[in-house]
Structures are given as structure tokens and as C-alpha cells.
Design a protein around this nucleic acid. Sequence first.
DNA 1: AGTATTATTGTTATCGATTACAATAATTAC
DNA 2: GTAATTATTGTAATCGATAACAATAATACT
Lengths: 335, 335
Amino acid sequence: MTNIKKVSELAGVSTATVSRTLKMPDMVTARTKEKVMKAVKEAGYRPSWLATSVKTGRTNTIVVLVPNLINPFFMRIIGGIEQAAQERGFTVLLCDTQGDSKRESDYASMVLTNRADGLIQLDHSFPFNEDDAKLAETIPMVSVCERIHSDKKYPVVALDNYAASRALAHHLVSYGHTKFAVIVGQVVSQIHKDRLYGLRSVLTEENIEFDEDMIVGQSYSIENGIEGMRQLLAKPNRPSAVICFNDDIAIGAMHEIHRQGLSVPDDISVVGFDNVKVSAFMNPPLTTIDQPAYEMGRRGMEILSDVINGVPLTRSSEMLPFQLLERQSSGPAPL
Amino acid sequence: MTNIKKVSELAGVSTATVSRTLKMPDMVTARTKEKVMKAVKEAGYRPSWLATSVKTGRTNTIVVLVPNLINPFFMRIIGGIEQAAQERGFTVLLCDTQGDSKRESDYASMVLTNRADGLIQLDHSFPFNEDDAKLAETIPMVSVCERIHSDKKYPVVALDNYAASRALAHHLVSYGHTKFAVIVGQVVSQIHKDRLYGLRSVLTEENIEFDEDMIVGQSYSIENGIEGMRQLLAKPNRPSAVICFNDDIAIGAMHEIHRQGLSVPDDISVVGFDNVKVSAFMNPPLTTIDQPAYEMGRRGMEILSDVINGVPLTRSSEMLPFQLLERQSSGPAPL
DNA sequence: AGTATTATTGTTATCGATTACAATAATTAC
DNA sequence: GTAATTATTGTAATCGATAACAATAATACT
């Protein structure tokens, strides 16, 4: 190991001088700087990040809790986080929680064990229990992506799922649809409630009846889209418009519709959420809600950085705008 | 901050005893254990990972260099890495390099600065220059995914791209195709050479002429697939079989074919590499090479763990088996 | 019971840096 | 040329743990 002591001996100076040469170069003479730099190069020395962090008490690392790394939508958010992190000198530690609450608290406690300075979660499942809640209060933490339920105390950057859901519903209603169905993802989440509530509110306003039986599904996956669609098509009264709670589900749903020899959108209109990359290149291209994922990630990291640095927050919750992308998977209701 | 000293005072023992209680519980009396645990709970104490790592010289962290986090294929590999890492008590630090060599060496040097114990790269672009090469020799490192060029000194887990490419070519030849085209991804890579060489070898054996003009493309993206297909379709002699060097490219290619009113596979057969999740749910489902991505990640991490722990390697390179998935995007050549 | 042995616990050096403070060297002021 | 001031450098404490070694307490043995 080449440590600072070896370098100091090589350069014939004290360790303090070596440290200063590297961290505050204009505090040393040109002559010593030269000597030290030569020794540094000769020894191939790099200061130990660990040692530095112990001393300074800052790791310049943040943890991101990701429910599912495979999901490209989360990856877009992470792209934004990474960008903002890089600009601020933070390293991002990505943690795939698989929705497992044990893993979540494990990873979250990295902040407590001086492994990271702060935490971003891409849903807000954490904290779950009393212990974690107490833990959570002392941690710099930001939630990105999910609108927050009343009592959470940390800042949130979110999409207005309620409004987005209403936009999709209006879009479909304007095409004359009256027989709606929904394929949902994870049920216990604010996203879920908001989107469902958004749809219901529009249908009520438009005096369209909604059959509770037409809500199926349980996870944000292609397979769930297939299975959900299979269930819907097995029902006596086939829906003409299916709202899927993310694009993966929609992709699965379309696949099943095609498999059964039906057409999108002639027989059934399908819409999704997220604007995943491939959604534009499906056959037909998918109508979906574009979430400003990258931007959400950016803002989340900016806010977390402020929290870590003790900058007071202006507001605790931000809603970013969405956009309805009308493509070819939705069209007029069949007669 | 609640440190070990505070806990030791609270429990009325020495710091050593506290440390031992937590790390080697059967070295202390039941009575002291009780005292210490009470104090730990009362103070909400967690040992600083930083301090522990400085002292022990191990971070139990490994860095993974990922060219592109959005690519779900890499994510599958990472899933395997994470699994094996978890089992061995390692934390995975994911680093998105964006193919940027500066970022690559920055991240790679995390191992030198005691930020991580080892490194896995999902391509083998690193090291690029003399400095990095010297650096690379001292680092526990494994390359996953790409067959390695002769002179690299670290272990590799790879797919046999040559054989896989031959399998695809044979598949298409058996359908009577003679007019081949290729849409490639990143050109400067062993993957690229192996796949192209595999295709050429089959065509030569089968006495099928191959027009060099029919090689287009430059990146592993949907957009590149679209643009590449556009170029191919603009040529006087339209190909009947298009081999795309990953599924994203294939998705883009199919999209462009459909957009121009042609049919897959009636007019043109399209095949890809990777077996990305959505590829099975395209319309039509994509014929592709299934790479054992998860397994590759697993093996890579296993090997790296051995290298870190000083276990001697049995061999320096492993090839994992692939599988040709015949789906509906490939079919008989048109007359 | 008195000694030998083993099991616990405490003291203190250490990991590799940073930094407050002390010491020395270089300027500046007179 | 000497004193006062400032710029550099060195010494040693520190961050929060761990672990070698020493000291003490508890058990075993004759």
C-alpha cells in the first residue's frame, strides 16, 4: 500500500504537507509542491477515500432505493439523479430493493452507518414501521416519483397522477368510449389511489358507469398485462378502452389482444403510463403519459443536496408537469 | 453522533468490549452482552462502516462499469451480479460510464482509493492507455459479456458471439435467404468483429455472396435501427434478411419496415441479439439470441470474489452457452 | 487451599488520512 | 540590522472503529 506516510518520506516532508499539497495547493511553496508531486507520481499515490471520509465525516455518496432496476422508467429518473449528483460531486449508490422491505431498511441504514450522506427513494414505501420511522427522521431523504401521503415529513418530487389519469380518461371519453377497464400495478401505493381516483372522477362527471369488476392486475410487468387482458377478454361484456397503469402492462395487454385475433385500436383502445422508450415503436405505437422522469430525478437530487448541506427548503413538495402523448393505440370506440 | 465511545460509557465497559459484543458475541459474558446491547439500543448506535473499513482495509464493495444503464440487457447481467454479491456480502456500486473513457477511469480508480475492493466491467474498453493499463494490473478485475482480445490479463466471462452469429445465419439460410444485411452497433469492439466474422464464415461456406454495402449502423439504439433500415430500404437491391446486433436495433428496424408498409417476416426477416424482455411481445415476436445474462453476471461476481480473496483461478476465460429463439419475425425468404 | 489454566475485559497502538496548534523560515517595517 | 509580521512547515491530536497485548477474573486441577 502506498500511503501518505510513504509519500512524505519520499518527498522528505511531513504528512501534513503532503495532504496540504493535494488539498490546498496554494498553501505550499512551489518548490515543495514540486517535490511532493514528484513523490506522489513516483509512488503512484492516491489518497484513501475511506480515510478522508472518516476524518471529514462526509462520504459524498447518496443512496437511491429503486424498486426494480429492470424498469427503464426508473432508469430515466436515475439518469437525472446521476447528472445532478455528478455536478455536485456526489456518487450514486443504486440499490435494487425488489420491493423487499427488509432490503429497503438495510439499504436505508447505510446512511446511518456513514456509508452515505443521504437517500432518495423512487417510491415511498419506506419507512414502514416505528423503528424505521424514527430512523427516517434523522436521515436526509427525498422521495421522487410518488405523490406523498399527508403525514410524511420529507420532501417529495412527484407527478400529478390524479391529473394525468384524468387526462387519459378525457382522451378516451372524447373518442366515445363508455366501457372502461383498468389493469393496475402494485396496489398499495399512492400512485394507485390517485390514478384510480382520477379515472373515477371523470367517469362520474361524464355519467359513465364503471364496473368494479373491470379492475384487474397486481404488478407492473408485461406478464401482468397479458394475464390481466386475458381476464378482461374472458368477461361477458368486453371493454372498449383499457387503461394500463404503466407501459409494460400495456405492452402485455396489446400482445394478448393481438394473440386473440383482435385489433388495437379498432376493437380495443389501450393506453399506458410512463412513455417508456419502446412504447413509441410498438405496433401500433402506444398512447401514453410522458412523465418528466429525467427532470424529476434532477430535482430530487438537487433538493437532497440542499438538505444534506443544511440549506433550508422553500417548499416540501413539487409537482412536475406531464404530457399526454396521443399515438395510435387509442382511437374511436367500436360501434 | 453516537459513536462507540458513548456506548461504552453508557454500558460502563471499554470500547473494545462493545466492539467485541457486536462482532464476536460469544467472546463476552451474557451479563456484559446484555448491558452493551441495552446501551446500543438506548443510544441508537450503529458502527460506522467507514471506520470499520479503514481499519480492516476491506470495503466489501465492488464497482460495476456499465456502458448504459437504460439497456435492459445489462440490467439482467447486473441482476446476476447483485445476487451473487449479496450472497458473498458485497455491495454493488453501479457506475454509468456512457462509454466515456474519462468516467471509466474515474470510476475504476475507486478501487485504488479504497472505495471498493474490485471491479467488473460489462465491456472491455478499459484500460485504454498506458497509465490505466498499469493501474489495471493491480486491481481485482473481471470482464463480463465480451470475448476478450488476446493480450488482456484479467478473467473474462463471455458469450460465444462467433457461434451465436453463425447460428442466426444458419437459421436464415435454412429459410432460403440469400440477400443479407446487417445493422451493427458500436463498431470498435470484439463483439462486433466476432459477430460479423461468424456471419461471413457461414455465407462463405454456403456460397452466398455478401455485399459489403449491406452493413449499416453505428450504435445499439432503436433510433439506429430505424435509420439503418431506412438506409437499407433505400438501396436498389432490398435485402430479405436483416441481422441486427441487438434487440433494440431490431425493434427500430421492424418499426421502420412497418412504417414503409412492408411486412415482417413476409417481405423481410429480422433477427436480433440479447432476448430483451419486450422482444417476445413485439408484433411479430422477435427471433433472437438468448444470452444467459443473469448467469454471466453471477459467474462474473463469483470469479471477482475469488480474485479479491486471493483464491487462485482455474482458468482465465469462460464461455457460456447461448440459445437461438426462433419466433415469428423470421420466416421463408420471399420469391 | 494454592497454583495453573482459561475466559473476559481493559489499555493502547493502529488504519490513513486531516487539521489545530506549535515551530520555524521568510518578509516586511522601522 | 533587529523586531514584528506573515508565510510555510512540522508535531501531534483526532475521526471511529479494531485488535494485539496486558491485566484481571473465573474456573480447573492437584
